[in-house]
Each structure stands twice: as C-alpha cells, then as structure tokens.
Nucleic acid binder design. Structure first.
Lengths: 346, 346
DNA sequence: GAGGATCTTGGAAGCGCTTCCATAATTTAC
DNA sequence: GTAAATTATGGAAGCGCTTCCAAGATCCTC
C-alpha cells in the first residue's frame, strides 16, 4: 500500500498537519519535530501524492509548453533551457506540439484545456484571441516566447537589431553592394529585419538599392523555407554583373537554399558572393554559415524564470524582454579573407 | 467558482454518481439522462478536474517521456508520433530530457519519481537497473524505444538488417572494395551494424578486408559524433590507392565529419569515394547524403500504442518489435552515376 | 400475476493532501 | 507574579472526483 501522511504521522507520533507542514517548509515546526518527521519519511520511502496535493491546494506544479512541431531545430534547445529551471521549481513540463500554424486553435481546443496547469509557455505562434481571453479569465499565466501578445509577458528576439548587426558586419568587411534575401514581408520578423538592414546601410552612408532587396512572396511558413531561399537566390544570380557582393539572408534555412543555388550556378561562397544567415540552426555550423545566433537555451531558461515570477506576482505589469542575437562568424561571410581581396572582388 | 459535478447534478436534476457515469462512458445510463447531463455540462462549460479524477481513480492520464537531449535531431519527430496517438488516449505528455547519458540515473532520481504517471516511454538510453526494479515493483508500465531491457516492451531498429541493406546497395552499384566507418564497437548498435556489413559482403562473395573496417575508439557518445567520423575518414584517406571506393558509415553524423575530411583532402564524394549513412537526420537531405532512414515518427506512434496496450493488459508477455530502416538514395552513394563509370573508378 | 433478472439511479465513503481553527505550551513584557 | 503575545501542534473540513452499495423501476418468464 501507498505510504501516506497518516502513516508518517502515526510513526513519528505527530499529527497529519505537522507532517504536511514539514513537507511544505512551513516555518512553525520545531526543529526536533521536523527532523523526526523527515527521518520517518525517508525510512518509509514516503513521496507526496502530487494529485492529492494539487486537489487540496489548487496548484498543479506543472506547466504546459505549446510548441510548433513544424520547425524542429529550434525547440529542443529551448526546452532544455526551460527544463533546467523547472527542476528547481519542482515542476513538470507538459508538452503539446502543434503541427501546423493554422491548427493552433483547433489543437488547443482539443488538448490544452484538458490539463490543468499553473502556467503556459507559448512558443513562436500567434495566440488565438479565443484562448487569450480564456487564459486571462482563468488567470492562467502565459508567457509568449518568440511572438507577441499585449496581455502577456513576452520574450522576443530583436530582429531589427540582429539584421542591423549582420549588415554592419558585411559593411565592415568592405562590402558596398549588399543585398537582402528576405522572407515574406507580411510577417513581422521579415519587416523588422528589413528595417535593421536599411538602417545599417543608411547609417553607413550607403544607398538602398531596391533591386537588391528581395522579399519572398511565398505564403508557406512566410517564406522561411529552403526553397524560398533557393528561388530568391536564383533571382540574385540572374543579375550577373549587377549582383551584390554580399547578401544578408533572413534565416539560415533560406541561406541553405541560397547556397544550393550558388553551387548550382558554379559559383563559390564567399568568393563570389558572401552570405550571412539568421538563427544559427544546427545545419549552420556544418555548412560553415556565418549567422546571427538566437540565444535559444537562454530564452527557454528565461521563459521559465519569467513564468515563475509571474506565478509569484500575478499583479505585476506585463513585461517585454528582447534578446539581441549574436554574430557567429564562420566562413560564408568571407571574414577570413583579407580585406584587400574583398575589395578587389567588389 | 469552478463548475463541479454537483452543479451539473443539481441543474440536470440527477445524482452526482450519474454525472460521473456519463463522463466515464459507463453503459448503465439511459439515453435521455445522458443527453440531459451533457447538455447541462456544455451549457455550464463544465470540465472534469483531472487531479480530482486522478486522486479518486488512481489513474493519471499522463505519461512520461524520458528523452536524451544530447541527440537533438532524432526526437521531435518521435514525439510527434507519440503525440499523434496520445490525443486519442486523452493523455498528457510529460517530458523529461536528460542532458548526458551518464546522468540518466541522477536525473531520474531527481525528477521522474516526483510525477505520478500511468506509463513511461524511455528513449535511446540504457535504463538503470535501480529504476527498472522500481518501475517493475510499482507496476508502472515502461516502453523502451531504441534500446533494450528484458523486462519491458521494446521497440528497436534492426541495425544489422539496415547495415546489410546499405552494404548490399553499394555492392549492387558495382563496388568491390567497400569499407565500414563504424562507431565504438563497445556499443550494441555498432556491433550489429558491423555484423550486417559483414553478412552482406560474405553473402556477395566478397572478402572482408580488416584494414577497411575502422571502429572508433572514442568513448564520447560511443563514437557517434561528427569528429569521430572525421578522424576515421582521415585514416581511410591515408590509404591512398588502397582506399575503398565506397564506405558504409555507421551514422549520418559521422558521415558529416567524413564528408568534411573528404572535401578537405580535395576529393569529391561520390566521384572519389561513395558514402552511405545511417539515420536520415535532418542534415542528411541537405547534404544529399544517401542513408538508411529510421522510421522515427512511426516508432513514436507505435511506442504510444504499445504503451496503451500494456496499460490495458498488464499481464501480457513482454513484446519486442524491430523496425527495418529504409534506404533513401541521394547523391553520396553515386547511384545516379552510370555503372560503367563506377567500375572504371574501381 | 408473482418472482426474479436486469436497468437505472442516488449518494456515502474515500482517494491523500492543505489549511484553518482551536488549543496547548512557551516566552515576553510589565 | 500575571496578562499578553508567540510558537507549536492536532485534526476536522474540504478539494472534485470515482466507485460501491442499496434501492427503485422496468422487464421477462412461466
């Protein structure tokens, strides 16, 4: 039979209230009693029943992570960060993966309401208003990561700043004719990255050549796909002599497609055209892709922390944190080449 | 206030037992009563409290997945498969990631005992005996995936068969001088893959040349690393004229390292040496790596199904299922080349 | 139409815990 | 020394559900 607080109470010759207090670190238990209870509990191998606890205290000690399954690379690292904090909080992680952005609402309807959780981490997708309202009403804290909602704490990557750094890096390497291979301008990240790109050029006194900014028109994942990168790169390649000497690519996955197009054309990166990506997905290091790294582990960890804070202070005003991506220099930007050479190319 | 079965009972003018029966699909509720209760429940937006349920029924409707965080690529797909089944089972997925194989035991000690779950999916790691005993004692069903334990249902990949197919594919392409770039022979998968390799050669009447079988001696992840592949490939390259015309590589990640070594040596794959990997990680398609695909989604889904069966029939005898990997032909095996050319190289 | 099955139903008990109230023991203040 | 405050403790009530037992209603069977 299961060991309960009654067994412990009897064995340690105290009341059940006292046993409960010991396990909840309630201050008003004398030192002697506490250690006696703990000794007995260890001896009988007692473990509190989480559901009984949850039922009685109206806490669940578990949180829900809603993640998109369709962009694999990104998430295990984030979850790692989340979990590193969660074990401190003595909290379970319930995972709910959504297969397609369009299914968020129906998926949530089907699943997320079933489980009772203390809080929710919501990743990379637009939170449907229907659920936002519901969570607000139920006072279930939600942290939105890599996305934004006015009513919830959010952690985002500063896309504009990231694109600014990326572009500036290329400028510093001596490039004057720099292109932007962007995603679908309908999406906020694409717009922000465009803005950062423009600011960097303008700030350096370079002109923004419209023909060198190419937005994807693909509706599929807003153009953040390998294929979108491939197609846009082919457009750049068709410019021949007018081609930029370096291109800022809105995401690594697009850069992968771009590299394929470059190879196919018989050209070399970075010799013929330099590339800089965004994200630092697993592939990036294998392809020696220079990129703007998003601090995923850190975002995960901070998301968990933020949720913990929110659970403690429900009234606090909604916070908004921005992470600045970090430049990871590899080979595709040509930083290892001598500047003279680059200038010769340009 | 929370809506409970008492509210429903009062509103629908029935007893709480009846309400409970309705929500548990108990047969002995008349049709009229059932629909009246459901109508009221919908109207009041009633949701059963999972913890109260769990406490009263001693079921939790949640399962635990213990996965290794250190081999990222593999798992989201498996989890996707798991989840596709879980929502049928009306079950939550609690995720617990282990950062390093050596930490399995300590990680489990810290975490896995806390949560009460109906069953456990245990991935890719050796289950510490300490926990195996505990789970058996508690009668917590465990399904071991991509690993083996005699007391639990297991799903594994048939490494021997996979390596056999991979090798046979190269033989069919006309190769006579085939090497094996293996992982650490201490690990079961490495041994099995070696055996499949040998069987294929022997079966085709080819000799097994000891110098063409290279096992990694790395203790890190049993040599299933990019670096181990890189180092072993350098050994192959140093054979010069004695080099195999094709190499079976024990894992894609090693093949990535091997490709790097080949490029570094100024050689071309598959022109100078053909390669076939194992796993079909995300990278593989981007690198055009021919490989033996492990059916991860399917394994995840079947794991969940197996667990569901086990929950229904705890007495059934332990099952053991083997998946056969599937050949995915891309470019590194040179299958697209004309056979004559290959023979010319050989 | 009587006796026995078979369906339905109500609701008490109990799952293992937290929490509050009452009370006892001890300390502090004057 | 006494009154008041503080500390430590026991245990009842209650969290929302399942499940069992008892009992009423309905249906057969001969």
């Amino acid at each position: 039979m299961r060991v309960t607080i009654y067994d412990i109470a009897k064995e340690a010759d105290v009341g059940i209230g006292t046993v409960s207090r010991v396990f909840n670190n309630h201050p008003s238990v004398s030192h002697g009693t506490r250690s006696r209870v703990l000794e007995v509990a260890t001896r009988l191998n007692y473990r509190p029943h989480p559901y009984a606890r949850g039922l009685a205290s109206n806490r669940t000690n578990s949180i829900l992570a809603v993640i998109p399954f369709f962009t694999t690379f990104f998430f295990l690292e984030i979850l790692q960060g989340v979990q590193s904090k969660l074990s401190d909080l003595d909290c379970d992680l319930i995972l709910y993966g959504v297969n397609h952005p369009d299914q968020v609402a129906s998926s949530l309807r089907q699943n997320a309401l079933r489980s009772r959780v203390d809080g929710i981490l919501f990743f990379s997708m637009k939170m449907p208003e229907e659920f936002a309202l519901q969570y607000l009403q139920h006072r279930t804290p939600v942290i939105v990561v890599d996305s934004y909602h006015k009513s919830f704490d959010s952690l985002t990557v500063d896309n504009q700043e990231g694109a600014f750094h990326a572009t500036t890096h290329l400028i510093k390497l001596g490039h004057k004719r720099i292109g932007l291979l962007n995603a679908n301008i309908e999406s906020a990240p694409a717009r922000e990255r465009l803005k950062g790109f423009q600011n960097a050029l303008t700030g350096a006194g370079l002109a923004i050549v419209p023909g060198l900014v190419k937005n994807s028109s693909s509706p599929i994942l807003d153009g953040f796909t390998r294929n979108a990168g491939y197609e846009l790169m082919k457009q750049f390649l068709s410019l021949k002599g007018e081609m930029p000497t370096a291109i800022v690519v809105a995401s690594d996955i697009q850069a992968v497609g771009a590299l394929a197009a470059i190879n196919e054309a018989g050209l070399k990166c970075p010799d013929d055209v330099a590339l800089i990506g965004f994200d630092d997905i697993e592939l990036a290091s294998h392809l020696e892709l220079t990129t703007m790294r998003q601090p995923m582990y850190e975002m995960g960890a901070l998301a968990a922390d933020t949720l913990a804070d929110r659970l403690k202070n429900p009234k606090e005003k909604v916070s908004q944190t921005k992470f600045v991506p970090k430049l990871i220099v590899r080979k595709t930007c040509g930083a290892s080449m001598h500047r003279k050479q680059i200038e010769a190319i340009a």
